[in-house]
Design a protein around this nucleic acid. Structure first.
Lengths: 265, 265
DNA sequence: GCGCTTGTTCCATTATTTGGAACTTAATTT
DNA sequence: AAATTAAGTTCCAAATAATGGAACAAGCGC
């Protein structure tokens, strides 16, 4: 069930914090609560050290230790995230345009942003039903097999793109997932010309999408919007027709950001 | 707009991590992105130290530094939280019962857990409309002015309760908010007898709720469920009638936890 | 009980954080 | 435009915290 997201890769120059966050990553990325020994083997650190690190994380509420000695993600993370989300400017600006797009198409709309080589979903608007938002929002998905991801890559400066691609490790999710930097690069070039991207069931079988990129002038910020739905309902032809509205929505969001954040960037 | 949640109060024995988390708290609790100098005055630390701490937090993606030198919560927090939420056992067990309760009453149902002296909302089920879940989920609210909070307190062992009450600082949100430990304690004793709690517009004017506590045998885990809605629609009489279904739902959730987590606790 | 695994504590060594000050850069005023 | 002030960044010896090996406890299966 793990999405194969490029996790870990510490070696950051963040001293103690970096080590602790790598550990937190390790525990939160697991599919189930881990016991001390499991973590010990995964983290490859001395017992004493690991024990203290875990204790600190637990004490701070970032991890939780249940009665059976298993470590699970802590609830303080939720509190932090709730604030992070509520105040995110990009999301706030995009919100009305996502709703419009949802109304116009009747399908699910996603907003995502490129972070490293992952796409982090910031918002999701579905037409009907109480939405289980956390089920998607906040999730990190690979950039090479999602519509938003490929759209985002298409706006990256050549050098950054080359860098990112060279560091990528591909996981095949479906028959049509890109598994080489070459074919991916070819498609990204096409996308750069067209101004929109498709996901042809590359991340999940039976799920398609059209996406358009959103970027700041200085390219420090890159994300995208998409319309997603089941393949049986969304023919490639229909998706092609939606390319225009998705691009328009992306344009309006960029305009909103320009107004809000000042035109200079 | 800040909910007056008892934040900070570090003095934890968590070394470097504790200091950094207190700083992260400070920035994420602010209503808007903070500039370096703002944080400097709030945190009361030497410039050099603060600068490095912020750099580390930014490097790790826990904070973000925009082009204008302002610090805002980072997106990595979302990724962490998404996992924390998706895997939370209590929430998973409660989910179907919350939905049932929502169906039965037509009003909004909340699930919360006591953490320190705050209630952290873990889930929310509304009847209609795409839900903006992060708008509530993950939020920490004071325990003394919410239905779930007071219900939870009623199941705390006497000693823990006394401790918690003595450390509480009250903020008056509405005319009926408890602002002294004495009146609160009196009500909590009633609640302990009755088995359910009301929120009589104590946190937000015009909003009422009935809540029932959920607890593990050893009282290490305490939370609650509630039905919430506008006062004009939810008379106190109607709320009283819902006390039974709320308690039943709470009972079923506890039963679910007993089965899942083993009967010993 | 015995051996084995798992989890916890201790403490000298090592590495990181600290905080004052000096230094750069940007913004504002004269 | 120069002078002045504020804002942000870098440096390094001293103080503090993290490390990791080993010894110590607690469970568990046999």
């Amino acid at each position: 069930m793990n999405s194969g997201v490029d996790s870990i890769t510490q070696a950051r120059e963040t001293g103690t914090l970096g080590k602790l966050m790598a550990l937190l990553d390790l525990v939160t990325h697991a599919d189930a609560p881990l016991r001390f020994t499991d973590i010990l083997s995964l983290a490859g650190q001395p017992r004493g050290t690991l024990h203290r690190q875990l204790s600190h994380l637990v004490e701070e509420g970032l991890l939780e230790l249940d009665g059976d000695g298993r470590y699970a993600p802590g609830l303080r993370l939720l509190d932090f995230a709730a604030r992070s989300w509520a105040r995110n400017e990009f999301r706030l600006i995009a919100e009305p345009h996502l709703a419009d797009l949802q109304q116009a198409t009747g399908e699910t709309v996603h907003l995502g942003v490129l972070r490293g080589s992952s796409i982090i979903y910031l918002d999701k608007v579905e037409g009907h039903q109480p939405v289980r938002m956390y089920s998607q929002i906040g999730n990190a998905s690979p950039c090479y097999c999602t519509g938003v991801g490929k759209a985002a890559l298409s706006r990256l400066p050549a050098e950054s793109l080359a860098n990112l691609l060279s560091g990528l490790s591909f996981t095949r999710f479906t028959a049509s997932t890109h598994v080489s930097a070459e074919t991916l690069l070819t498609e990204i070039r096409e996308i750069a010309d067209l101004g929109y991207a498709f996901d042809r069931e590359e991340h999940e079988a039976g799920i398609r999408c059209v996406a358009a990129p959103i970027w700041s002038e200085d390219r420090t910020f890159i994300g995208g919007v998409s319309i997603t739905g089941p393949a049986y309902r969304l023919s490639m032809e229909l998706l092609s027709q939606w390319a225009v509205p998705v691009q328009l929505a992306a344009g309006r969001i960029m305009e909103g950001m320009r107004v809000r954040l000042g035109p200079r960037r």
